[in-house]
Every structure is written in structure tokens, then in C-alpha cells.
């Protein structure tokens, strides 16, 4: 199963776990399964239209999924999924 690295702000949902193995052959399924095991997870990384939130970056095989197939990016059992908050400073 793919390994998912959980950033600090989401660890409250994962009982403090920094890494989880999650079943799923693409990113969308992994998020769905994470949400099933840890309710509220999907809401934190996906916006109202079901796309990745503006301030969430997800890397698969060390590449931003926005350069791959987004939530449809395929995963193998040995892949590592990193969820990394974007680093924004904001304005006002």
C-alpha cells in the first residue's frame, strides 16, 4: 500500500501519526480511504468542488501532482505521498 506523509496540522486527525499506509491505486482513492478511517480528512485537503485546496501541495514520487494527473495520479504500493502545506505569507 502507498505510504502517506501527514503534515503537523493534520496529525490531530490521525492520532498523531506522521506516516500512514493507505490502500488505493490513485490519489483520489487514497484521500477517500483516509477520510473513511479518519473522518474530516478529505474536507481539510479538498475544497468544495472536490479539488485540492489552494494551499495544499501533494507530491507523489517527489513530484507535484499538479504536474502529473492531479487527484487521478496513479499510485503503486511502494509510492510515497507527501502532503505539504504551501508556504504563503499573505497580504493583510
Amino acid at each position: 500500500m502507498p505510504t502517506v506523509r501527514i503534515p503537523t496540522p493534520l496529525r490531530k486527525l490521525t492520532d498523531g501519526n506522521a506516516e500512514l499506509t493507505v490502500d488505493g491505486s490513485d490519489l483520489r482513492t487514497v484521500v477517500k480511504n483516509l477520510d473513511a478511517a479518519h473522518p474530516g480528512f478529505a474536507e481539510r485537503v479538498l475544497d468544495d468542488s472536490g479539488e485540492l485546496r489552494r494551499f495544499v501541495n501533494v507530491f507523489v514520487r517527489d513530484e507535484d501532482v499538479r504536474f502529473q494527473q492531479g487527484l487521478d495520479t496513479e499510485l503503486s504500493d511502494t509510492d510515497v505521498v507527501s502532503i505539504v502545506p504551501a508556504v504563503a505569507g499573505g497580504a493583510e
Partner: peptide, 24 residues
């Protein structure tokens, strides 16, 4: 948080614990 308004104490922290928006 600039996006959702959640507050956090002063610390070395840059991401909203709720929505991932930037902290200011």
C-alpha cells in the same frame, strides 16, 4: 489565518491548523 480567521498563539508556525491557509 488569512483565509479562515482561526487564531493561534505566537510561535514558529506558518500554516493554519484548520484550512492550511497562511498565518499572519
Amino acid at each position: 489565518c488569512r483565509e479562515c480567521g482561526e487564531t493561534e498563539p505566537l510561535a514558529a508556525s506558518h500554516v493554519c491548523g484548520f484550512c492550511f491557509g497562511p498565518l499572519e
